[in-house]
């Protein structure tokens, strides 16, 4: 069953479309990797799922639903009940995402209390259990620690503990390791994948790390300038990319010694608010761009299972269709 469904979701800030008509779905127990260069709308689209887009941002969609409940039309209060319990999110910078004025224990217990309730003793025991679960040594003493007493890796573990406190069915992780030391990154990813398997959560993993996505994701969404240019099962997308952008990303992979390719495959940068080109947004950087591309924006082709947004999707040999 589909856990989260987005159909033609857009997020606009005034005239600027930070997220432009994207559609994807996440099933129970599925890992969805979202990749794309900086500014491609990965964070904004996830925040819109959490209901965290502030004024002046506006979210519109033909359908934004979680477990068949329409998130956009439900009352604010009901939505807040789902956020933090059924859908949880962890953020990029663990050192700034915990409130500096409150202890670790307080912040975990607060999440538990908000959604599940219970008396002090039970809550405390559950918080300790969670700290254990995310691999924090000596959890008893960590309960009373303040965020500034923790390292980045520890903070991220605490944030994960808070996010999974109410057994979410879906966890969105927005570049959960970008701010951490390389040695810690793998540990955090292992922890996330372990938890995902153990609890059979849906996991949306936003990252710049293509190699990681290839390793852990069931499905992939590739974003560019607010749009989904390609999506599909991970093995298909990685073996036979159908969009020139994906192809370029993958081409850059083996060259990086560490296997952690940053997404700088094509010359140029993602167009921002003021320099979006006419026609296909990739056309200034696309090696296959034609005049047609520069004037007419391509539609999404295919189904939700396997979509590609290009006039001339690539064939199995990686050549543009005639």
């Amino acid at each position: 069953m589909s856990l989260l469904t987005l159909e033609n979701l857009s997020v606009t800030f005034g005239k600027f479309r930070a997220v432009d008509n994207i559609s994807y779905s996440v099933k129970e127990g599925e890992v969805l990797g979202i990749v794309g260069e900086s500014g491609s709308g990965k964070s904004v689209s996830s925040l819109s799922v959490m209901g965290l887009i502030d004024y002046p941002g506006e979210v519109s969609a033909d359908n934004l639903s979680f477990a068949d409940q329409d998130l956009l039309s439900m009352p604010e209060k009901q939505r807040r009940k789902i956020t933090g319990s059924d859908i949880a999110m962890i953020f990029q910078d663990p050192m700034t995402s915990l409130n500096p004025c409150f202890t670790v224990g307080y912040q975990i217990i607060e999440a538990l209390k908000t959604h599940d309730g219970g008396n002090k003793k039970v809550l405390r025991a559950r918080a300790l259990e969670l700290l254990n679960l995310v691999g924090i040594p000596a959890p008893e003493s960590r309960m009373n620690a303040y965020p500034h007493q923790l390292s980045g890796g520890m903070s991220q573990r605490v944030m994960i503990a808070i996010a999974i406190a109410c057994n979410p069915k879906l966890l969105i992780a927005d570049e959960p390791t970008t701010a951490l030391d390389v040695t810690i990154q793998a540990q955090i990813i292992d922890l996330l994948i372990d938890l995902q398997k153990q609890k059979q959560m849906g996991l949306v993993l936003i990252t710049h790390d293509l190699a990681l996505v290839a390793e852990v994701a069931h499905r992939v969404v590739v974003m560019y300038a607010g749009q989904i240019v390609e999506s599909g099962p991970a093995n298909e997308v990685f073996s036979t990319p159908r969009h020139p952008y994906t192809q370029a990303l993958l081409a850059s992979l083996p060259e990086s010694a560490s296997g952690k390719a940053r997404l700088e495959a094509l010359p140029g940068v993602v167009p921002g608010q003021y320099d979006r080109p006419q026609g296909c947004l990739l056309s200034p950087r696309c090696p296959y761009a034609t005049d047609h591309c520069r004037h007419v924006a391509p539609d999404s082709q295919g189904s939700l299972e396997r979509q590609v947004k290009c006039h001339t999707p690539l064939d199995a040999q990686g050549r543009p269709a005639a």
């Binding site: 965290l52 789902i82 933090g84 953020f91 700034t96 995402s97 409130n99 500096p100 944030m159």
Partner: peptide, 14 residues
């Protein structure tokens, strides 16, 4: 506008 307030919202706190 800080990160920890955004994270607090994401916890579903009132």
């Amino acid at each position: 506008q800080s990160d920890y307030i955004r994270f607090a919202w994401s916890k579903g706190i009132s």
